[in-house]
Design a protein around this nucleic acid. Structure first.
Lengths: 129, 129
DNA sequence: TATAAGGCTTCCAGTCACTGGAGGGTCAAG
DNA sequence: CTTGACCCTCCAGTGACTGGAAGCCTTATA
């Protein structure tokens, strides 16, 4: 398969797939003309990566997850630990964003949003602590 | 004031404050010895920046917000629009993270996390679509 | 068979908002 | 006069791509 085909099937940009090769995640064979030639297994790896990335795992986490995926002697505890850590980080991120959102929503609410210059948003940002 | 003093008061790393100068956000005076010399107004700007960044505004948004802050003829509508857009982006981000979180939490829940290799997390990531 | 469109290649640079570190000058206290 | 805490500049790296230039290769059509 050419890169365009796997890009369509894995729903990843070709640029990204080349990048994954650069960093050693998926290394396809090459045709005599220099074109990348992806096997079904390569395709499968890319799909795996796409899904792990969509769950927010970092590239390094993905690399580790792929290793575990291919290791028949893995312990599910290791995978679960990785995923739980990631889950905790997502929760932190959500909490942080919700805090931002709450503050910002209050400010937006309080702002008239008309032609006058008075603005509680700027007033808050500029207040001396 | 030296950079260390404003760093403490604005709760921003000195490195970050120098970076803000690089990109033209806050340009302090210089002493004869080359040290930066921050005025109260510089300090105020840095505090403004710190708060805007803490609300998740991008640097370019911050630049615009500072301009508006200093413009006595601004219209609060412009500020409100900027903040509302940002609020919408935060909401999108939260929704995205909650979706991730939900999926991941289900997988973590389903995983025994013991010495055995069977793992629903990896099974899900590796499933053919 | 010529050509044009589209796909493929590499390589370089840019994104965002810092952050780390090397290498060196300055200042206040003891 | 030395020590240690500041301060300076400049360069490079982070994460995960993304855009673009310059140039092959393939395929379809005239």
């Amino acid at each position: 398969m050419n890169i365009g085909d796997v890009a369509d099937r894995a729903r990843l940009p070709a640029k990204t797939i080349r990048y994954y090769e650069d960093i050693g995640l998926v290394t396809p064979a090459r045709r005599p003309n220099g074109y990348r030639d992806y096997s079904e297994q390569d395709m499968h790896k890319l799909a795996f990566l796409g899904r792990a990335r969509a769950l927010g795992f970092s590239i390094e986490d993905c690399r580790l997850l792929m290793t575990l995926y291919e290791d028949r002697n893995r312990e599910s505890a290791e995978v679960k630990a990785l995923a739980s850590d990631h889950l905790a980080r997502i929760d932190e991120k959500i909490a942080e964003l919700r805090q931002m959102r709450a503050t910002l929503a209050d400010l937006v609410e309080a702002c008239a949003g008309d032609h006058r210059p008075d603005c509680p948003i700027l007033a808050d940002l500029g207040k001396t602590p």
